[in-house]
């Protein structure tokens, strides 16, 4: 398992070194290109900001009103029985439906429990190994006017459930009490 920690620590530096050397070998003016590319990051953030404001407000209200803890209480019998952290149930479902709404819930969990708590770590791993199905399916299939998607949805849900189970398993192994 220390191997996974090693990857975590080395991944970003390795990508830096690899890309910089590759850039040199192709005689790319890497700094100029970097600055140009960094502007894209600014644009992306500007696109995210308004949706994040909207959804963090709605999730914030849901949390402050006590509605989220109510929901957690409702799902706790089932979640406890299968060993699933009940606080993360709303996020798990929202993840499939909306990327921005799930980000709102994710940030709420970070704020409430801390990113280094078990819940914080588990949801981090889960978010990185799952994908928003509803949005992706609609843009791709609408673009070619396909209405019968056959087993696509089943397969996507299956893959995502596998990702969630794997996340829980590895989180328990690494950080479980």
């Amino acid at each position: 398992m220390s191997f996974l920690i090693l990857i975590s620590n080395l991944m970003v530096p390795l990508i830096f070194v690899f890309i910089i050397f590759y850039g040199y070998s192709k005689k790319v003016e890497i700094y100029d290109v970097f600055v140009e590319g960094a502007k894209d990051g600014l644009k992306t953030v500007l696109q995210i900001l308004p949706t994040l404001i909207g959804l963090m407000v709605s999730v914030g209200i849901l949390r402050a009103s006590g509605a989220l803890s109510l929901l957690e209480k409702c799902v706790s019998p089932i979640a406890d029985a299968i060993g699933y952290p009940k606080e993360t149930v709303p996020l798990t479902f929202m993840r499939l439906i909306s990327s921005s709404a799930s980000t709102g819930i994710l940030l709420d969990l970070y704020k409430t429990f801390g990113p280094d708590s078990f819940i914080g770590r588990f949801v981090s791993v889960m978010m990185s190994s799952t994908e928003t199905i509803a949005y992706t399916m609609s843009i791709y299939f609408i673009s070619v006017k396909i209405t019968k998607t056959r087993y696509t949805l089943h397969g996507a849900i299956f893959a995502n459930i596998a990702g969630v189970i794997a996340s829980l398993w590895i989180s328990n192994l690494l950080w479980g009490s």
């Binding site: 191997f3 990857i7 975590s8 991944m11 990185s128 190994s129 990702g163 996340s167």
Partner: peptide, 13 residues
């Protein structure tokens, strides 16, 4: 610290 475990879970999915 979540990169490695995330990579594992991504691979599984």
């Amino acid at each position: 610290e979540i990169i490695g475990p995330g990579l594992f879970a991504t691979f599984v999915s």
